[in-house]
């Protein structure tokens, strides 16, 4: 199979088409406040936020090999920082979101230093412990409502935009913007030198290290950047919810389990995976939500089946079949089409 003539390239026809379609979809989505209903917009906003979380988790787990089950630590942290910064420091919400991101990145530094001592699966549970520590700590802060939580004061909400519909549009655009920024950031990161190193680590950590790649540092950077961005997303999420409590903010189901399922179903280690996963997840949720707990059981079941039968997820399956990719990341060796099958 290696005796054919080849050419190596990164772009592909499908990627160009995808880029073009992507721009059109984006324009349509930006215009959503003018064509979509209130409920639809809420749903789409939520989808974008989940999509962003999924992309970030995918960057960590799928590319850097850092399987975290404690990302709710940063979601909750970001949410609480939004509340703290707006209520006590008097910052406008938009500034507070950025502030939450910066603080999230800062706090992830000592966290990383500690839990990076754990390998592989122990690391995963270590992140969970950290999330629990965060949750219990914030439950102790009585000025933020302690264990029962608190609501964002009306004045702060008003400062965002005057009318309710304007606020909702704004929230929607912010969610969309977050998704675009996160996908673009992950994409550019992966195309950079660092990203190449990251891919090398994913493929073979030992070999990458022997090539002079500082594995620890790259993982550290990924973890910190992810922590910061996740905290920003957390701030955004709770700006929409307007109410925060430790159990909601640090919920392992909402912010980690669902995100993991999205990535796994869509296809881990690919940029397209989270997008497909988000669509599948929300489709499942909207059709099965009435069933209550059954829906989560089905979800767990689907994830297990996908993991066992198609470990590369829906997108991995598609890519294997048709050899297309929407984000030109992989180098392509083009060869003559095979005649068999």
């Amino acid at each position: 199979m290696s005796v054919q003539t080849h050419s190596v390239s990164r772009g592909s026809q499908s990627a160009k088409v995808a880029a073009f379609l992507g721009v059109i979809v984006l324009i349509v989505l930006i215009a959503a406040p003018w064509w979509a209903g209130r409920a639809d917009m809420r749903l789409m906003g939520e989808m974008f936020l989940y999509l962003s979380l999924a992309c970030l988790w995918n960057l960590m787990a799928g590319y850097a090999g850092l399987v975290s089950v404690g990302q709710q630590a940063y979601v909750g942290f970001g949410g609480y920082m939004l509340f703290a910064l707006t209520m006590f420091a008097g910052l406008p919400p938009l500034v507070a979101i950025v502030g939450a991101g910066v603080l999230g990145a800062l706090i992830s530094i000592p966290v990383a230093a500690l839990i990076f001592r754990l390998r592989g699966a122990y690391f995963a549970i270590g992140t969970w412990v950290m999330a629990e520590v965060f949750r219990l700590s914030f439950a102790q802060v009585s000025s933020l409502g302690g264990g029962s939580g608190s609501s964002l004061p009306v004045g702060i909400v008003r400062s965002l935009a005057g009318s309710r519909s304007a606020r909702e549009s704004l929230a929607y655009w912010m969610a969309l913007g977050a998704a675009v920024v996160v996908i673009a950031a992950v994409y550019l990161f992966l195309r950079s030198r660092r990203g190449l190193a990251l891919t090398a680590i994913r493929d073979n950590e030992l070999a990458a290290a022997s090539l002079g790649i500082d594995v620890w540092r790259i993982k550290f950077v990924v973890y910190v950047v992810t922590g910061g961005l996740t905290a920003m997303l957390g701030a955004l999420i709770f700006l929409q919810k307007l109410r925060i409590s430790p159990d909601a903010a640090f919920s392992v189901n909402d912010w980690t389990a669902f995100v993991i399922f999205i990535v796994v179903i869509g296809g881990i280690g690919t940029l397209e995976g989270p997008i497909i996963g988000t669509l599948v997840f929300f489709a499942l949720r909207e059709t099965l939500a009435d069933l209550g707990t059954i829906y989560l059981i089905v979800l767990g079941f689907v994830a297990i089946v996908v993991m066992l039968k198609a470990p590369r997820g829906v997108w991995g399956f598609v890519r294997e079949r048709y050899d297309i990719q929407l984000f030109p990341l992989a180098y392509h060796v083009q060869k003559k089409p095979k005649t068999d099958k």
Binding site: V264, T293, I297, M307
Partner: peptide, 22 residues
């Protein structure tokens, strides 16, 4: 790869919890 066992048991965990709930 540590990912598959981790994710499968994670899925099991969610299933079990919700089975208890039900």
């Amino acid at each position: 790869d540590i990912l598959p066992p981790l994710l499968v048991t994670f899925g099991l965990s969610v299933i079990l919890q919700n089975l208890f709930l039900a």
